Each structure stands twice: as structure tokens, then as C-alpha cells.
Simulated assay, not measured.
Amino acid sequence: MTNRNRNVPPLAVSGLTVAYRKKPVLRDVTFEIDERQLVGIIGPNGAGKSTLIKAILGLQPALSGEALIYGKPYKVNRKLVGYVPQRESVDWDFPTSALDVVMMGRYGHLGLFRRPGARERELAMDCLDKVGMADFAHRQISQLSGGQQQRVFLARALAQDATLYFMDEPFAGVDAATEKAIVTLLNELKRNGKTVLVVHHDLATVADYFDSVLLLNGEVIACGPTETTFTPERLQQAYGGKLAFVARSEREPAGAAGNGR
């Protein structure tokens, strides 16, 4: 793919500092991610996890530092990047079908003056099929359940045919079937040589889902293989006094708090 350099990491962040209304949210964030990794971005509420992704993608201005995609800024290598935003940030009342949403993932490959054709439609249908949504291709996006909407956005990310993916809380508020579909998709992406960073809250599933973790709380607490990084000591550093409450919450039965996590 264009501008991909296999000799440099998919993502390298150096000295990234971001503030909202002069209040620092991220301070001197520095880390690198290796290829073909499923990476969980873990930390308490307000730790700056979503802000980190937005800053990397140029959606949130940074005070200092840089983020490089295969050694180049995002605006140069944006075709290598797929993004699944938080479901709450999307206008689900926009009048469009699930198929149209997925086909939007092809626009970056088509350029300004080409319209999606039969090939793009076929590819979009294939992506919907992979997330179990082919039968809903012509359904208005507003008529889908929360889990179904999330699957459609995952299909759109697949249609982008990216190399590096960012997913902001894809497991939030989904049912068990959708969670299983997401995990299957993540592992398929990895098998296909992709690198995926996922903002995630369920501490109980981190060791099962991710090869590596980035522990974040305004700054990088630790970044590395899950086995050696996702430890009680590091979690205590990241969550502080909130850790006991979080641990209890994650051990609740799935039905205790509805469909969400």
C-alpha cells in the first residue's frame, strides 16, 4: 500500500501533549506499536484514551509532539488507517442505508471524481457479510439496534482495507453475539497482517483479547506485551484507588447491568 515502510513501526508517538481549555489531558505521551498486534488501550475514565486516538488522527490539535504512521504524518498515510469512532458520536438519524455507510469506507481509494461502482458495492456487501449484517444491507441505519450499528461501522472499517486500525470502545453497549463477532473480526485482521488499537474498559477480558496493552492515565503508565504489562502493580498505578471498584464491577454477571459492559 502507498507510503508503507515495513522498516518502521505502524505507529510511533513521541512527546504528544494535548489540552482542553488549557487543562492538560495528555502529557508527553511516547510509545511505539509493533506490527500485527491487537493492542488494548486501557485506563480509567478521563485518562485521555479517546483523546489520544483523535490527536493521532488530527481530529484534536496537540500542543506538542507528533504521531507517525509508518514513519509519516497521518495526513500523508491516511489511506493506511481505518477508524471506528464511539457509537455515541455518530448521528444515527442520518437517512442512509447500512450498505451506503460501508461503501463510504471506499471513498479514500476512489479519489474526488470517481463514484462507487459495482466492484465497491460487491466489496461492501462482502464486508457486511463478514460481520453478519448482509441481510440488513438496505435497512436504514437508524432502524438498527446498537449492536447492529456497531457491526456496520466495523464493516466500513474493513472496506477501507487499512493496515492500521483504531477502534474507540467497539464493545461498549453491545450484546454477547456482537461482542463475539467483534473478537472474531479482530483476530481475522491480525491474521491478515493488520495492527489494531482498541479503547477497552472490561479488565476481565483484556488478557483474552489483546497481545499488548497501553496503560494510560494522562501519561503512559506502561506499554508492552499483555503478559508482562497487564499486572496488578501497573493497574494500581493507572487506576489508583478506583481499581477495587473497577475489579468488582467487571466480575458482575453479564446480566447484572443489561447488555453493556
Rank of each mutant, 00 (worst) to 15 (best):
V81N: 08
G82A: 02
Y83L: 00
V84Q: 14
R87L: 08
R87A: 00
R87S: 06
R87K: 13
E88D: 13
V90M: 14
V90R: 09
V90E: 13
W92C: 04
W92E: 06
W92H: 06
F94T: 01
P95H: 11
P95Y: 01
T96H: 08
S97I: 06
S97V: 04
S97C: 04
A98R: 00
A98C: 11
D100M: 11
D100A: 15
V101H: 10
V101C: 05
V101S: 03
M103L: 10
M103P: 06
M103I: 08
M104W: 15
M104V: 05
G105E: 12
R106T: 05
L110G: 09
F113S: 09
R114D: 13
R114W: 15
R115C: 03
R115N: 12
R115W: 15
R115V: 02
P116A: 05
P116F: 11
P116G: 08
G117Y: 13
A118I: 03
E120N: 03
R121S: 12
E122M: 06
E122A: 13
E122Q: 12
L123I: 08
A124P: 05
A124Q: 02
M125G: 10
M125E: 12
C127P: 12
K130G: 03
V131S: 04
G132V: 03
M133T: 03
M133N: 01
M133I: 00
A134V: 01
D135P: 05
F136V: 04
F136Q: 12
A137Q: 09
A137K: 03
H138Y: 14
Q140G: 07
S142R: 09
S145T: 02
S145R: 09
S145P: 01
S145C: 06
G146S: 01
G147K: 10
Q149G: 02
V152Y: 10
V152R: 02
F153Q: 06
A155G: 06
A157G: 07
L158S: 11
L158F: 15
A159F: 09
Q160I: 03
Q160P: 13
D161G: 01
D161E: 09
A162E: 04
A162P: 07
A162S: 03
A162N: 08
